[in-house]
């Protein structure tokens, strides 16, 4: 028994040390990235932040800094992608919201200068903007709580004999039911049940949308930088995407950034 406890102790110590070492190295990379950003070396900062993201860190502070570095480097599509990712990790982040608005505005300016005119989508759909402020966990807890409350009220309504109490329960039940349905729909929206693919952003201006996953396949349409897309599947160096306006086709992996 003593041996077992000793072993467990060693294991815990080892895990704690490994975690601390990882955190230390991650912190170093993060500080190097911030340093590069502050000295105007945006590409170097992006590379460092990218190391953290690729190592599995999914922290809104890092994705926000990555988005900011991309924005400073003029990669507005990438900036929008990482700000969106920040909002997924920390819904309602004002800095990220401002970042998206700024990057979208600059994209529009640049496009207008190049093409004479530009149209950019700045506001998401109504229900999407309603859901945007809540995290998936918040909506899941709300759904569960409202579900439990609704049925508890129904049970009480069935068993309570006092008329005044029954009246109160009768008013509360439909309200709770309605709120529960709204929360459930919001959760489904957040989970992407109404989408065909994973959310993504186009990161290259005038990116080709082809009929097939082949560079020689005919071009079907073009996608604008910063445009939202749904990523349906991947085939080699191409991804099958769906864009607004019923546009669908294959784009280079490098042209599309998954949120």
């Amino acid at each position: 028994m003593k041996r077992l406890l000793l072993l467990l102790g060693y294991a815990s110590l080892f895990t704690a040390l490994a975690t601390a070492a990882h955190a230390d190295s991650a912190r170093e990379v993060f500080q190097r990235a911030n340093q590069a950003y502050l000295t105007g070396q945006y590409d170097a900062a992006i590379a460092q932040y990218q190391v953290l993201v690729e190592s599995g860190v999914a922290d809104p502070d890092i994705t926000f800094n990555l988005g900011t570095a991309h924005a400073r480097a003029g990669h507005y599509g990438e900036a929008i992608r990482w700000f969106e990712r920040t909002l997924v990790l920390r819904p309602g982040d004002d800095d990220a919201e401002r970042g998206i608005a700024g990057a979208t505005s600059l994209l529009g300016t640049r496009r207008a200068q190049a093409e004479g005119e530009a149209t950019v989508q700045t506001r998401p759909a109504m229900f999407e903007s309603f859901v945007r402020g809540f995290s998936e966990d918040t909506l899941a807890i709300a759904t569960l709580a409202l579900d439990t409350l609704f049925f508890a009220v129904l049970v009480a309504f069935f068993f309570v004999g006092r008329e005044s109490t029954r009246l109160a329960l009768g008013i509360a039940a439909p309200l709770l039911g309605l709120l529960g349905i709204v929360a459930m729909f919001a959760l489904a929206q957040k989970m992407g049940m109404f989408r065909d693919g994973r959310p993504a952003v186009i990161v290259r201006e005038h990116a080709e949308v082809r009929e097939g996953p082949d560079p020689r396949a005919a071009e079907r349409a073009h996608a604008s930088e910063g445009e939202r897309a749904e990523l349906i599947s991947r085939q080699g160096n191409y991804v099958h995407v769906r864009l607004s306006g019923r546009r669908e086709g294959f784009m280079l992996v490098a042209d599309v950034g998954e949120i």
């Binding site: 955190a23 991650a26 912190r27 993060f30 911030n34 950003y37 502050l38 953290l52 599995g56 860190v57 999914a58 922290d59 809104p60 502070d61 890092i62 926000f64 800094n65 900011t68 990790l89």
Partner: peptide
Amino acid sequence: LHATSEFLH
């Protein structure tokens, strides 16, 4: 820029 991070996974 955010100067700190919790390095959440």
